[in-house]
Nucleic acid binder design. Structure first.
Length: 111
RNA sequence: CGAGUUGACCAGACAAUCGCUGGCUAGUUUACGUAAGUAUUUCUAGCGGGAGGAAAGUCCGGGCUCCAAUGAGCAGGGUGCCAGGUAACGCCUGGGCGGCGCAAGCCGACGACAAGUGCAGCAGAGAGAAGACCGCCGAUGACUUCUUAGGAAGCACAGGUAAGGCUGAAAGGGUGCGGUAAGAGCGCACCGGAUUGCUGGUAACAGUAAUUGCAGGGUAAACUCCACCCGGAGCAAGACCAAAUAGGGUUUCAUGACUAUUUUAAUAGUAUAAGCGUGGCUCGCGUGGAAACCGGGUAGGUUGCUUGAGCCUUAAAGUGAUUUAAGGCCUAGACGAAUGAUUGUUCACGACAAAACCCGGCUUAUCGGUCAACUCAUUAA
């Protein structure tokens, strides 16, 4: 996603929260309706996660999880934001929490 | 074998599956083109590459880039034993001096306070060319008593005294002997200091001799003085390409103004903002349209961007930092930002922490391990 896309998401978001994540979501506005149109943006503030090593780790895990689940998700743009304290979690816990969020989104989409 | 010092190195390993990033090769796709082909297009496959010793803090120094430049000075800032190394340094090496350690070794902003100015709480008698609180003395002078008339004893009044005590971080060289009423560098010896000379050393400095009774102590990360160094800003530097919109310039066309001709609608000519309020000055309003090209330039893109004071091996010079020569090697280059995830096996159960223009240092963080040299202790020969 480019900065323009980020602005679009921030303008009219649908919020999903969990203990350590906040997701902002809008339906994609791509003119050509392709199958892989859901896109991911990461906004991990230095204020929330201090060390560069930890920030990179979280980004990787979120990307990985997104990659594995993207085919089940509806056509959306989303920005993943992060709350403080997430650097205390290990990889397994983060994966669990993300899986929960994906399920939530899919449920919402159906309804 | 134990305790330790210094230097160098490593930073879990292996396998399977699924991914990320940019490079090369092959194919594919897109754009332009009649085609050959061109391209910094899309996607796929294969191959090989892909964070650190500190990438960190951003504390110094340099390269590179732009700006300014003829040189010098002032201001401001920095450095501060000596010599060497280096592109340069506040770094490194070697040496000196001082301190710590049994030792290997480690630590030190380590110029100048007998240029000037300033500062020093409490305590204490006294804190800077000092000071008499306790103490010591009271020779000399005063007073009292005695007297053999020379003096003797007392008193602690004048006064002398920096040995001792007390205070303090610090009390105006130290120790000893002489000396004295008691004392005092007052005199002497040794130690220390200062000055001058000589010797060794490139130098810092060290050694030594003579002279000098010896001194106004501390503090310069206090002002200051002395010596040396420093132009400013930074890759968001800078260079190139360049959409939309607005605006600038040039050319052409159209329109409008005036004049002439005539078929009253055209042609030719003139001027290029001439126009209107308003006849003039002044003032105000107005000064338009289309196309092409040009230039500046925003978004955006490309570049800068990794071949470099580079790394490895060997040899030579040097105590060493380092330098020189020969041979070999190419080892991340992203930009919403790449090195991961899962599972299994294994071990000593994995710390601190991730490039962002590039180097040289310093500082700080750090689980543990390997190697080399050296020191101490114990035992044996």
């Amino acid at each position: 996603m480019t900065p323009g896309h980020f602005q679009a998401v921030f303008k009219k978001p649908l919020k999903f929260g969990s203990r350590h994540f906040t997701l902002l979501i809008t339906p994609t506005h791509l003119p050509e309706d392709s199958s892989k149109s859901n896109r991911l943006g990461l906004a991990i503030a230095k204020k929330r996660v201090k060390l560069a090593v930890q920030r990179n780790r979280i980004k990787r895990i979120v990307r990985e999880s997104f990659r594995l689940n993207q085919h089940d998700l509806p056509a959306i743009d989303m920005v993943v934001m992060v709350k403080s304290g997430i650097d205390q979690l290990d990889n397994k816990e983060i994966n669990k929490e993300l899986a929960k969020i994906w399920r939530k989104i899919i449920q919402r989409h159906k309804n």
